[in-house]
Write a protein that binds this DNA or RNA. Structure first.
Lengths: 337, 337
DNA sequence: TTGAAAGCGCTAACAC
DNA sequence: GTGTTAGCGCTTTCAA
C-alpha cells in the first residue's frame, strides 16, 4: 500500500503538495499535478480511511425528520433501521438527532422551519406532504449538505437521493397475486381506509397500478367495487359490503381492519391482500385471514438512508441517486419474526 | 468523546497502563484495574476505530472457498456479493483470495487440503459435501480464526457462523403458492432435475417441506407425481409426463428446463414454481411460463458473510451465530433488474 | 508493574 | 506555489 509520503518522495515534492493535488485545493503547478496524478494512477494509491478520518477528526451530525411514531405504528419501522445504523456508525463519529412531526401539514411546516435554522451535516426526511416538502427541500438544499428522502418521492432528477418503493408496481403485483387465486367472473373490493386528506399520492399510485394489471385481461371479467370505509373519521363496515366479494385489496397499512371484520363475522373464502408488517397485520396473516402483505421494507429504507449519508460523509463515496426497494411478498409461510 | 490519554490522567497512570487494562494484557495491579474500569464506565469511553486501526496497522486476508462458477451459474451470485463487500472494505485493509472447487467431493477434498496449509485471518466457504466439509471444518477450526459458512448448513451449535436458507420452509412456501393457484383435485408434478449424487440435503429438505404443507389438507385431494428428469446424465422430458398436470415444482435452480419444454410444446395452463434467479429462469419468468421463483439471495449471503468477517476482525464486534435469509418470492411483477 | 515515546498515514495550519 | 510540522488517538516496544 503506497502512501502520500512515498508518492511525494517519488515526485520530488512534499507531502503537502500531494495532499493539495489529491484534494484539488489548487495552488500547485500543472506540471506537479500531472506527475503526481500519474504516480497515483501507476501505484494505485488509495486513501487510508483510518488515517484520513483520524486526522480529519470531524464528528458528523445528522438530522432525521419523520412523522411521530407514537401516533402511527408504521413510522416506528424506519426508526428501527435508523437506530441500527446509528449504532453501527456511532464509533465513526456519526450522530443523529431526531425531529418528529404530527401527521398533518401544519406540524410539518412548523418543524421544518425550526430545522432550517439549525445546522447539520446531512438530512434524512420523509416528504409526506407534497407542497410543504417541496419548499422545505428547496430551502434546505441551499445548505449544501446531502439530503436523503425516504418513503415518498416528490421530485425526480433533483440533486437529492430517494430511497423507497415503486408504488405503482406494488399495485400491479397485488393484482397479479389476487388474480392468481381467484376464478373468472370474480368480484374484487378495493377498500379505502383513509380520511380524504390522508390519501397520499402513494395511495393513488397503488390503486392505479392495481387496475392497470387487469387492463388487457377482459376475458377474466372481473367486477370491481370501490368503497371508502372511513365515514366521518370512523371505520364503517357492513356485511353487505362483502356480498359476493372474492378478494379485498387494501392499498395502505390497515388491512387488519378488514381482516378483523371478516373474522368476527365469519365471512368465508375472501382473499385479502394489504401492505406493511404492522403487528396487527401480522397477526391476521398468521391466522390465515390475510393472504399477502406487501412489504416496502421501511426498516431498510431507514438503514440504507443513513448508510448513504455515512458513505458520503465519512467515506466520501459517491453513490447512485435513487434506490427502489425490492417489493417483498410476505405470506404466512415466509414471515420471519 | 473521552480518550485513553484523559482516562490515564484522571486515574493518575500512563496511557500504557490504561491500554493494558482495556486489552486485558495483565501486568497491572488490581487497584488500577478497578480505578480505570470505573472511569471507563463513568465516562462511557469508546475506542476510536480510526486511531485504533491506524496504529494496529494490520491487513486482514480472507480465504473464500466455493464451487467453480464457470461451471455453475448459480455460484456466480455469491461471488457478486463477496466482490461488492471486498470493494467496500478494501480500504479498510481487507483482502480476499479466492479458491474454487469443482462440484465433486474429490476436488473439494484436494483444494481443502491445500487451503489447510495456508494461513488466513478468516474463511468463508460453502459446505456442499457433508462429510468432506465436516472434516475440513474440524481441521480449519484449529487455526482459531473466524469461519463463515454459506448456502448449506452442516452443523448446528458449532462455534462457527452459518448464513443461508431454511430449505424446508421454502418447500412449504412453494406449496402454499401453488395451492393458491390451483383447484381441488389437481395434479402436481415434482420434477427432479439432478443426477443422483447431486441431490443434496437442501434438495431433500425442500421436497419434504413441500409435501408437509399438504399433510393436513386432505380435502384438497391433490395428486402428486414425482419424476426424475435426468436419465443417464441427460435431460429426458416427454409430453406424457405433463398429462393432466396443473403445476410443476422444481426444487432446484433448473426450472427453465421445464419452462422451455412447456413453451416449445405449447402445453397450456401449467403453473411452474422454481428456485433462483438464473438468467434463463428470469427469461421464462418474464415470458410468463414460470410463475414464481424462490430466491435464497445468494449475493446477500456472500455479502453478509464478508461483512461478518469484517465486523469481527476490523471492528472487533461479536454478532449472532446464524442468519437465515428471508425467503423472497419473485414474480414477473416484482422482479427488478 | 509502569511510564515514555515512536509511529501508524493523513490533514491543515503556518511559514517561506 | 511549496515545504514543514503538529497532532488526531491508539498500539506497542523499550527501558526502568
Amino acid at each position: 500500500m503506497i502512501t502520500i509520503k512515498k508518492i511525494a518522495e517519488l515526485a520530488n515534492v512534499s507531502p503537502g503538495t500531494v495532499d493539495r493535488i489529491i484534494h484539488n485545493r489548487g495552488q500547485v503547478t500543472q506540471e506537479n499535478i500531472d506527475i503526481v496524478n500519474a504516480l497515483i494512477e501507476k501505484h494505485g494509491y488509495k486513501r487510508n480511511i483510518f488515517a484520513s478520518n483520524l486526522a480529519f477528526n470531524k464528528k458528523f451530525r445528522i438530522a432525521v425528520f419523520l412523522p411521530k411514531h407514537n401516533e402511527l405504528e408504521y413510522w416506528k419501522l424506519p426508526i428501527y433501521g435508523i437506530e441500527k445504523a446509528e449504532k453501527e456508525y456511532g464509533n465513526f463519529g456519526f450522530f443523529i438527532d431526531y425531529y418528529y412531526y404530527k401527521y398533518d401539514s401544519n406540524s410539518f411546516k412548523k418543524n421544518a422551519e425550526k430545522l432550517l435554522k439549525l445546522d447539520y451535516d446531512g438530512l434524512l426526511f420523509a416528504p409526506i406532504f407534497h407542497n410543504e416538502s417541496l419548499s422545505f427541500l428547496n430551502e434546505y438544499t441551499k445548505k449544501n449538505v446531502p439530503i436523503i428522502m425516504i418513503d415518498s418521492n416528490i421530485v425526480e432528477n433533483y440533486n437529492q437521493y430517494y430511497i423507497g418503493q415503486d408504488a405503482y408496481q406494488t399495485g400491479l403485483l397485488s393484482a397479479k397475486l389476487i388474480s392468481y387465486g381467484i376464478k373468472k367472473n370474480s368480484s374484487i373490493l378495493i377498500a379505502k381506509i383513509a380520511k380524504e386528506n390522508d390519501i397520499t399520492s402513494i395511495f393513488n399510485q397503488r390503486v392505479k397500478g392495481f387496475y392497470s394489471y387487469f387492463e388487457n385481461k377482459n376475458e377474466l371479467n372481473i367486477n370491481f367495487k370501490e368503497i371508502n370505509i372511513i365515514k366521518n373519521g370512523k371505520v364503517y363496515l357492513t356485511k353487505e359490503m362483502f356480498n359476493d366479494i372474492d378478494a379485498v385489496y387494501i392499498p395502505n397499512s390497515r388491512s387488519y381492519i378488514v381482516a378483523k371484520f371478516i373474522k368476527n363475522n365469519n365471512l368465508p373464502n375472501i382473499r385479502i391482500i394489504g401492505y406493511d408488517l404492522l403487528q396487527q397485520n401480522i397477526e391476521y396473516l398468521k391466522l390465515g385471514y390475510i393472504d399477502f402483505l406487501i412489504n416496502q421494507k421501511p426498516e431498510e429504507q431507514g438503514y440504507i438512508g443513513i448508510t448513504k449519508l455515512y458513505k458520503k460523509l465519512v467515506l466520501k463515496e459517491e453513490s447512485n441517486k435513487n434506490i427502489y426497494m425490492p417489493i417483498e411478498i410476505i405470506t404466512k409461510e415466509n414471515w420471519i419474526e
